[in-house]
């Protein structure tokens, strides 16, 4: 028994060691920093301020705006990616010509680094020579992300959808192929049509997969950075300065390490709350099924 316990500790020791060094210690350090006013370019770079950094957060209009923008971005992206992903995944359960090719092409964006995706879209949306502004001009719409804040915002949403919907499709396809046959056979016997089967059989059975995918996508979109950084750098003005972009600017450009730490902790707390709610929902839905 003792030997067994030793073996277990021996096996999990590397993981524990990594977790402590790359997870626990940095978080403790961030908590520590959040209590200080810390800017390397200040005359007195390091000053204790207690909870002042957290109080400042509540009254910081730039932070609140970036948080609002970030949450809107999350809601829009997840609100489109999930239904769209579900639709495509369902279509891919059918047999049609070219299905294999479509599935391969569809998953290509997933194989690309987000920074490359951003670069590609910079070229696509370039107001001087990009194909997207050119096509819009053909139908009488002036598309210029440098001027139009809404266009910039919706372009970042579009890019995220383009990049990550394939991931949603893949997870839903995995979920759909693992569903049992009996409920479908029962629905058939009961005379349910395709929509009724989808609404009353597929969706409830797929609920845990849907919520898990939502859980992953909420966390991912909340911390979106590379694509938006490449595409707009948070502009024009502050139109796409999502909370993740705002945080990076505060750390790397303003060098407000103390305040940024407080901001990071708040965002971590927010993410935990959102995830907790989703997990509770997943658990209750699993119990129900």
């Amino acid at each position: 028994m003792k030997e067994n316990r030793k073996q277990v500790w021996g096996l999990i020791a590397p993981t524990l060691f990594l977790m402590i060094f790359i997870g626990v210690i940095p978080v403790i350090y961030v908590i520590y920093l959040s209590a200080f006013k810390y800017n390397v370019f200040a005359k007195i770079p390091f000053r204790y301020t207690g909870f002042n950094n957290f109080r400042k957060l509540v009254f910081d209009p730039d932070f609140l705006k970036s948080l609002r923008l970030g949450l809107t971005f999350v809601a829009l992206c997840c609100g489109i990616e999930l239904p769209l992903g579900l639709l495509i995944a369902n279509l891919l359960t059918l047999n049609f010509k070219g299905k294999g090719i479509f599935r391969t092409i569809m998953t290509l964006p997933l194989a690309m680094a987000p920074i490359s995706i951003g670069s590609i879209w910079v070229l696509i949306t370039n107001p001087d020579f990009g194909p997207l502004p050119f096509l819009f001009r053909k139908i009488g719409i002036e598309y210029n992300m440098g001027i139009n804040a809404n266009q910039a915002f919706f372009t970042t949403v579009l890019v995220d959808i383009w990049h990550w919907t394939p991931f949603v499709v893949l997870t839903f396809m995995a979920g759909l192929t693992s569903l049992p046959n009996q409920p479908y056979e029962a629905a058939l016997v009961d005379g349910a049509n395709r929509w009724q089967t989808f609404r009353y059989v597929t969706i409830p059975l797929l609920k845990p997969v849907i919520l898990t995918t939502l859980f992953i996508r909420v966390m991912d979109t909340f911390r979106v950075f590379d694509e938006v950084w490449m595409l707009t750098s948070g502009g024009p003005g502050t139109a796409t300065r999502y909370v993740s972009i705002h945080l990076v600017r505060m750390v790397l450009q303003s060098m407000e390490y103390g305040y940024s730490s407080a901001m990071s902790l708040f965002l971590l707390y927010l993410t935990i709350i959102i995830c907790f709610l989703l997990l509770t929902f997943i658990s209750s839905s699993q119990e129900a099924t």
Binding site: A149, G237, M255
Partner: peptide
């Protein structure tokens, strides 16, 4: 303190350039 200063300048100048 030119680096953090630039960030503040950027914020307000870009807001005006964007028409905000």
């Amino acid at each position: 303190m030119h680096r953090p200063l630039n960030e503040v300048y950027l914020k307000w100048i870009s807001k005006a350039v964007a028409g905000e």
